[in-house]
Amino acid sequence: MLMLLNTPYALSLSRSLASSSFPSPPTRRLLSISSTFALPPPRFPHSSLVSSRVSPSFRTQASAATSTMGDAPDVGMDAVQRRLMFEDECILVDESDNVVGHESKYNCHLWEKILTGKMLHRAFSVFLFNTKYELLLQHMLVMLCKYSMWKIFFTCLSFRVLGQQRSATKVTFPLVWTNTCCSHPLYRESELISENHLGVRNAAQRKLLDELGIPAEDVPVDQFVPLSRMLYKAPSDGKWGEHELDYLLFIVRDVNVHPNPDEVAEAKYVNRDQLKELLRKADAGEDGLKLSPWFRLVVDNFLFKWWDHVEKGTLKEVSDMETIHKL
Rank of each mutant, 00 (worst) to 15 (best):
L110S: 09
G117L: 04
M140H: 10
W150D: 11
K113P: 07
K132Y: 09
L120P: 01
Y133R: 04
G163R: 00
F153L: 05
F159N: 04
L136D: 00
R166N: 07
L157P: 05
L128D: 00
F154C: 10
E134C: 03
G117N: 02
S167M: 09
M119T: 06
L115C: 13
S158W: 10
A168T: 13
R122Y: 13
E134I: 02
V126H: 02
C156L: 04
S167I: 11
T155S: 14
L157K: 09
S158Y: 09
Y133N: 00
I152G: 07
F153P: 01
V126G: 00
C145M: 14
F153T: 06
K146D: 14
F154A: 07
L120R: 13
T155K: 08
L120A: 10
F124K: 12
F124S: 12
K113I: 05
L141C: 11
L144P: 00
L120T: 05
L135G: 04
M119E: 01
R122L: 14
M119G: 02
Y133P: 02
G163P: 07
K151L: 06
Q138C: 09
N130Y: 08
H121F: 05
S158V: 09
T155Q: 07
M149R: 12
L162H: 08
H121C: 12
R122N: 15
F124Q: 07
M140L: 09
L137H: 15
C156P: 05
L136Y: 02
C156T: 07
F153M: 05
M143V: 13
F124C: 09
Y133H: 06
T155L: 05
T131S: 03
F154E: 11
S148E: 12
L110R: 15
C145D: 01
V142A: 04
V126F: 03
G117C: 04
H139V: 11
F154N: 14
R160I: 06
Q138H: 12
T116W: 06
F127G: 00
S125C: 11
F124E: 03
A123C: 11
T131M: 01
H139W: 14
C156V: 12
L136W: 01
M119A: 03
F127R: 00
A168M: 15
C145W: 11
I114T: 06
K113V: 07
L144F: 00
Y133K: 03
Q164L: 10
T169C: 05
K151V: 05
Y133C: 01
L144Y: 01
W150G: 08
A123P: 08
C145F: 12
T155E: 03
L120H: 08
K113D: 07
A168C: 14
F154T: 14
S148N: 08
H121T: 13
W111G: 01
L135C: 12
K151S: 09
L162N: 03
G163F: 00
I114Y: 02
Y147D: 15
K118L: 15
C156Y: 02
F129V: 02
L144A: 02
V161W: 03
T131H: 03
H139P: 08
V142Y: 04
G117E: 00
L162A: 04
L110W: 06
L144I: 05
F124P: 03
K132R: 13
A123T: 11
H139Q: 13
T116G: 03
E112D: 15
